[in-house]
Design a protein around this nucleic acid. Structure first.
Lengths: 214, 214
DNA sequence: CGGCGCATCAACCGTTCGGTGGAGGCCGGC
DNA sequence: GCCGGCCTCCACCGAACGGTTGATGCGCCG
């Protein structure tokens, strides 16, 4: 089964998979909510899912599918198929319970192999993705901002001044500065603006991130 | 003809177009350079092109195709088919000579209509895109940073301090500040960090933008 | 010709920021 | 029980930043 908000991509995956005798596309969804309902109804062996989707994104969908089936015998194997290869995207998807993670610029052969492997529960990662994850585990976390630091940084990204951030978080301005210094050290920069761009590049921050749920 | 770096998307578009009797996909390319060579050889009526591609991106390709054919009788009509709908992406593509601009989340029918219209030289825009462009022409340019201002802002995004930016651009620090103030005014913010995030959100700046040509 | 936008520069000001060198409390792991 | 990480706070400093006012030169356009 497929879940992707782009009709073109859905058609593409479906078309490619249709060339293989051992595959059958039993359904497709345009967002996470649809996907969950369809999975319930169709019970596919494998779910190919995009991360960035309206209504409910990929990670939330994966997590929900993994969790909500306590009695159900067999949740589908999940292969993430997306354009995005930032560190946190990958990590969040894998942590949420994705079996594999493939980038959309992979050649068809690789896609086929990945789907077969996923069906059998084997973990598949794009070469780029794999090296990223390895790098992650070697140096535990090159970034790994604490929750508090992230709160500070998101406000910094919006251009909020330390004094206001302090008032916002009910802490003193000195504390905000301390957090900032720690953030700089972790990101390897030495000013707030660079911190924001680096965080965005690594996927630690997201553009237009107002939402506060996680 | 198609130009997109994602095999999945190429297959998707090709598959969708194949369902229509009046379309024929004569070739496909994975990047701008490939696309230009193939257009030369195949002379398609319409070129569907993605903006974000390796080697040479969509806008550069469109511009090159429009310019390099002074003697040639008929450059192809160009339909941009992309995920990105930031103001500057659209503007740059249209200015480069794109006939139409469609988002990848458009339903198949819309794609078909768009291709047919493009083939006849009619301009097609996604509803979202159209409204954006209209908004643009109403208020001439809400952003519209000058070239110099953009140079300053890109360096600011990297965390460069004014003094170094000044040395970089062979101007005085005072001038850098003046540019910054103008940037703030144009973007509706009042500090450099917010300026960077707003510029990124509007597509004025791009993450990981080191290249200095254009 | 007279604007207008752009780019350039110069003082000058108060504010904010980055950085140092502390300090204490809390919690979880070895 | 101690160590380490996280969160919290303080005082102080120089540097950087935001903002003001005012100025010059260039090129474009009506």
């Amino acid at each position: 089964m497929l879940a992707d908000d782009h009709p073109v991509v859905r058609a593409g995956i479906a078309g490619l998979l249709a060339t293989q005798p051992d595959f059958e596309v039993v359904g497709d969804a345009a967002n996470g909510k649809e996907a969950m309902a369809l999975v319930e109804a169709l019970r596919p062996d494998v779910l190919l899912v995009d991360l960035r989707m309206p209504v409910q994104d990929g990670v939330a969908t994966i997590r929900a599918l993994r969790e909500e089936h306590p009695g159900a015998p067999k949740p589908p194997q999940i292969l993430v198929l997306t354009t995005y290869d930032t560190d946190t995207d990958i990590l969040r998807a894998v942590e949420a319970g994705a079996t594999g993670y493939l980038l959309k610029d992979s050649p068809p052969d690789e896609l086929f192999r990945a789907v077969r492997a996923t069906a059998q529960g084997h973990s598949v990662l794009s070469p780029t993705v794999a090296s990223r994850l390895v790098g992650h585990t070697r140096r535990p976390e090159p970034s790994a901002l604490s929750a508090r630091e992230l709160e500070v940084l998101t406000r910094v990204a919006r251009g909020t001044i330390n004094k206001i951030i302090a008032r916002d978080l009910r802490i003193s301005e000195a504390t905000v500065k301390t957090h900032l210094l720690h953030i700089f050290a972790k990101l390897g920069v030495d000013d707030r603006t660079a911190a924001v761009t680096v965080a965005l590049e690594r996927g630690i921050l997201r553009l237009g991130a107002q939402e506060g749920q996680g």
